[in-house]
Simulated assay, not measured.
Amino acid sequence: MTNARLGEALGLLGIGHAAARVYPVLLELAPAPLGEIGAAAGLTGPELTSAYAELVAVGLASAAADDQDVVAPIPPAAGLEILGRHRAAEVDVSRLTVGGAFESFRRQRLAAYNDDLVEVVTGEAVGPRLRQAWASAREQIRQFDSPPYFPLSGATEDALATLTRGVRQRVVYSQASIELPGNLEEAIEPCVEAGEQARVLPSVPVKLLIIDDAYALVSLSIKEADVHNTLLIVQPCGLLSALVALFEQSWQSALPFHGRAVPRPGGLLPADRRLLWLLWLLAGGARDEVVARELGISRRTLFRRMEVLMARLGARSRFQMALQAQRHGWL
Score class of each variant (00 low, 15 high):
83 L>Q: 05
160 L>K: 05
18 A>Y: 06
284 G>Q: 08
330 W>D: 02
119 E>R: 14
163 L>N: 06
317 S>N: 07
83 L>H: 06
107 R>E: 10
161 A>Q: 12
319 F>N: 12
300 R>Y: 13
53 A>T: 07
16 G>E: 09
119 E>G: 12
223 K>G: 11
97 T>R: 13
61 A>I: 00
208 L>M: 10
172 V>C: 09
59 G>V: 04
64 A>T: 03
279 L>H: 00
233 I>R: 09
164 T>L: 01
184 L>N: 09
218 V>N: 11
125 A>K: 12
155 A>Y: 13
270 P>D: 07
269 L>F: 06
132 Q>S: 15
55 L>W: 00
112 A>N: 10
76 P>Y: 02
233 I>K: 06
111 A>P: 03
321 M>P: 02
147 P>D: 09
93 V>R: 15
304 R>C: 05
13 L>N: 01
107 R>N: 11
4 A>C: 06
127 G>F: 02
33 P>Q: 05
99 G>Q: 09
94 S>N: 09
267 G>Y: 02
286 A>K: 03
58 V>H: 08
80 L>D: 08
217 L>T: 07
184 L>S: 08
75 P>W: 03
32 A>Q: 15
127 G>M: 06
204 V>G: 00
276 L>R: 09
101 A>M: 13
136 S>P: 04
253 S>F: 02
90 E>F: 05
133 A>I: 01
1 M>W: 09
164 T>S: 07
187 A>W: 08
28 E>F: 07
253 S>L: 04
57 A>S: 15
119 E>A: 14
133 A>E: 00
237 C>K: 05
116 D>V: 11
258 H>P: 01
274 R>A: 15
18 A>F: 04
242 A>E: 07
90 E>L: 12
242 A>F: 05
132 Q>A: 15
72 A>S: 15
96 L>F: 10
317 S>Y: 09
188 I>K: 05
132 Q>D: 14
190 P>V: 08
329 G>S: 11
294 E>I: 06
182 G>L: 06
101 A>W: 07
306 M>W: 00
120 V>W: 10
180 L>R: 13
214 A>V: 04
137 A>R: 01
86 H>T: 15
8 E>Y: 10
151 P>Y: 09
131 R>V: 09
230 T>K: 11
180 L>W: 12
67 D>V: 03
137 A>E: 01
219 S>C: 15
194 A>N: 00
208 L>P: 04
45 G>D: 03
23 Y>N: 01
319 F>Q: 14
85 R>W: 10
287 R>G: 05
260 R>G: 06
213 D>P: 03
110 L>C: 12
262 V>Y: 11
159 A>Y: 02
21 R>L: 05
181 P>W: 06
9 A>V: 02
277 W>T: 13
10 L>M: 08
114 N>H: 14
73 P>T: 04
136 S>C: 09
288 D>H: 11
